[in-house]
Simulated assay, not measured.
Amino acid sequence: MPLSLAQMRRNYTLGGLQEAEAPLDPLALFAQWLQQARETEREPVEANSMHLATVDREGRPHCRVLLLKGFDEGGFTFFGNYQSAKGQELAANPYAAMTFFWPGLERQVRIEGPVTRLDPQLSDAYFDSRPEASRLGAWASPQSRPLADRGELQALLAQTIRRFVEQPLQRPEHWGGYCLTPERMEFWQGRADRLHDRLDYRSRGGQWARQRLAP
């Protein structure tokens, strides 16, 4: 008989995370881990893929997978439709959590903080850098709204293509970027026998404080 879900487990043995090896700045550690995830052949997922969790007006959480498109001292940026379910949730409760999981490295990073819209000029610049098909899709798709079938979406795309035959394909006002400013970042490294390493960073008065958490 196949193993039940309760019997499925993996022993993590690739490495550890000690305070002496971790920068005091969590952004520096994130950059290091992200680069290692991009370079390792063991990593089966896109290194910049993340789970983004938001909360709606009724206090119900929602989660989906997105791609991180940039980060710096100002925060972590991603893009999407402002009128989508995600966009409405962020408008009602502009606070979110994102999680990166790199199973090939047995690592996870959790990031939490307030979310704001990017400056329109930054959204314009990123939109213009996207492939034409992706830009057309941003116009054509009424994201998160019900569709009768796949044919309706294809019809909307055909209509959009005709619309932009003789006019510039600029960013729609309902589409753009967000920036999550981190207030908390937690780094998790899998260890043997479930005694994992967890380093938790909290922003306090513009400075980062770090502590170890029990697994």
Rank of each mutant, 00 (worst) to 15 (best):
D128H: 12
C63Q: 13
D124S: 04
E166Q: 14
M8I: 10
A28Q: 07
V165L: 14
Q83F: 13
P182I: 00
G80S: 15
M1N: 05
A155M: 10
G75K: 00
Q88R: 15
A20N: 15
P2G: 00
Q159N: 11
T54F: 08
R150D: 11
G113W: 02
Q18A: 14
L17I: 15
L66F: 14
V45C: 08
E58R: 13
Q36D: 10
S49Y: 02
L136S: 05
G177W: 08
S134R: 01
W139Y: 10
P44W: 01
P172M: 12
L52A: 02
E186G: 11
S203N: 13
E58Y: 05
G80P: 05
G16T: 15
F101C: 13
A214R: 13
R57W: 00
L90R: 00
A31H: 05
D25L: 14
F164H: 08
E112K: 11
L66R: 06
L118G: 05
H51G: 09
W33I: 02
E173K: 11
A133M: 06
D25H: 12
G80E: 07
E43Y: 01
E89K: 01
G176A: 04
F78I: 02
Q167Y: 01
L14H: 09
L5C: 06
P120N: 05
N11L: 04
Q108D: 02
Q35T: 09
Q7T: 00
Q170R: 08
L29D: 08
A192K: 14
T13G: 10
R191V: 07
E73C: 09
R184H: 12
F78A: 04
E39A: 12
A214I: 13
R212T: 10
A28R: 14
P168L: 06
S129W: 03
A47K: 15
P103Q: 12
R204P: 05
F164L: 03
L105A: 07
